[in-house]
Simulated assay, not measured.
Amino acid sequence: MAASLKYVLHYYGSQSLLQRLGVWRVDPARKGKYWVVYIHGGAWRDPRVTHESFMPSIDWILKTSPAATDNVGDNSRDSTSNAIAGFASIDYRLSPHPQFPQDPAKTPPDQYRGARHPDHIDDVRSALVFLQRTYGFGGDYVLVGHSAGAALAFQLLTTSSPSATATEHPVPPAAIVGFEGLYDFTAVDARYGGAYATFLRGAFGDDPENWDAAAPIKFTGNYAENWPGGKFILLGWSPDDTLVDEPEADNMARRLRDVDGFVNEGQGGELGEKTLLLLKDVRGDHDEIWRSGEHVSRMVWIALRTLGTEL
């Protein structure tokens, strides 16, 4: 179904061939609708995971009825056109991967995967600025991130201005959907017996203090205050996930409630209060979830419904 939409590949930077993004347009001219923007995972380093990994989720979103977020309905395309202006999926510069080594002396600079924080989040910022300039949707979008992509979605909110290597900060999203996310880098590495240290060193350097400085759960500010236009966060986790455990989602949700003042979805609260939903009935192993796309679709429709789109 994604193949039936108009697809455009854009390059938002010139340093790397990975500074690119794909756009699938539904009806970008219509006002009052949201874009759905995806950030893939892959431990900040896997060249096999690209922006095209969002296509199975787009297929499910296009065919799934929001009235019952996990069932197919005949009104699905009408609902999609009423709620969604377009889809975008972001590639970003990657860190080195030991299974896919490159010789820096022989690899063209724009093909070499040697990124280190904050390169990844700078690219996400640049990609979002490009999208907002090109398609003019401002903050009317749901930002969806898987695994490391979920970490990047929250890192977008942890600074009010970009790093020295970036040029501009984008308008933040109306909602964030993070599934199987990595939020507390030192803690998850410790729980897995140091198994994640290799890719964390590749992305953030050798010093675990730098991992903590970049970890979303260790953000020293307040997410609600740094995100005045934000409305809703959905954290999704699957009990089938063998790579990211339940405490990652539980602890991030606790932090958002206890530190940042988010209110559990469905528990009321004052008008304008930011809400949080921790969804732990997602099914599938870590990468099976995006490979299928079914539960990603469900989470996106929940976010759109919470935002009050006309379904």
Rank of each mutant, 00 (worst) to 15 (best):
A2S: 12
L5K: 02
H10C: 05
Q15D: 15
L18A: 08
G22P: 02
V23N: 11
G32L: 06
V36I: 14
R45W: 05
D46Y: 12
S57H: 12
T64V: 01
A67S: 11
N71Q: 15
G73E: 07
N75H: 05
D78S: 15
F87P: 11
D91F: 05
L94K: 09
S95W: 09
S95V: 12
H97E: 10
F100L: 04
Q102P: 09
A105T: 10
T107C: 07
D110P: 00
R116D: 00
I121N: 11
I121Q: 11
V124D: 05
L128Q: 09
V129P: 01
R133G: 13
Y135V: 04
G136R: 14
G138E: 12
G138A: 10
V142Q: 07
H146M: 13
A150P: 02
L152S: 04
L152I: 08
A153C: 13
T159A: 14
E168W: 05
V171F: 08
I176Q: 00
V177F: 13
E180S: 14
G181K: 06
Y183A: 04
D184T: 11
R191N: 10
G193T: 02
G194Q: 00
A197S: 15
F199D: 03
F199Y: 14
R201M: 08
R201E: 13
R201L: 01
G202A: 15
F204Y: 14
D207P: 06
D207N: 14
D207E: 04
D212F: 05
D212S: 15
A213L: 02
E225N: 13
N226L: 02
W227P: 07
A249E: 12
M252G: 09
D260R: 00
F262S: 00
F262H: 00
G268I: 01
G269N: 05
E270I: 08
G272N: 10
L276T: 01
R283K: 14
G284N: 02
H286W: 11
G293K: 08
V296Q: 09
R305W: 01
G308F: 08
T309N: 07
E310H: 15
L311G: 11
